[in-house]
Amino acid sequence: MATDSATCDRRIAALAALAIGLQVIEAAIPSPVPGIKPGLANVITLVALLTLGWRAAVAVTLLRVVGASLLLGTLLSPGFWLSLAGALAALLMLTPLWRLYPGHISAVGLGVAAALAHTAGQFLLAWGLIIPHPQLPLLLPPLLLAALITGVLTGILTNSVLSDPRIQRHVRNPPTARTG
């Protein structure tokens, strides 16, 4: 049991490291529109969720948000809170949906739902606390559209990652830690 737990910890750490790396790389890519980016780190969240379970996905996500903000120097800045709000909203959305995997939903549906929740969570925090501007909702539709597109793309990426034989091994034989 201790070995399983340690194995799971190592997998979480490895996935979190990948997610942090992706987020840092993404932060270096200039975006034409503030608030819109591919969100490739969400692929890792989905992979963690669908291979290691809900607790692992939460752990990977929180490690990613905190770890990436440490590297980017945004810890506790508005950007950090926005990132955290989006990540938590996405996890909240995934909590009921991921049980439908793989029989009724694939990573594409999960990715779209998570991306929209991510954007909505960020937006609510931004609108409620950071920029309480009455016209801020005008920014929401394009952000949601971007989330829809990036959600489909990250979902497709996740599906192809999960269909990789090396990952499939973990999906078919999930560790005992899959209790969440």
Partner: peptide, 12 residues
């Protein structure tokens, strides 16, 4: 595409 489920269509 391979691997898609009805839930995906519903969500999208």
């Amino acid at each position: 595409m391979r691997g898609l489920r009805w839930g995906d269509a519903l969500v999208v």
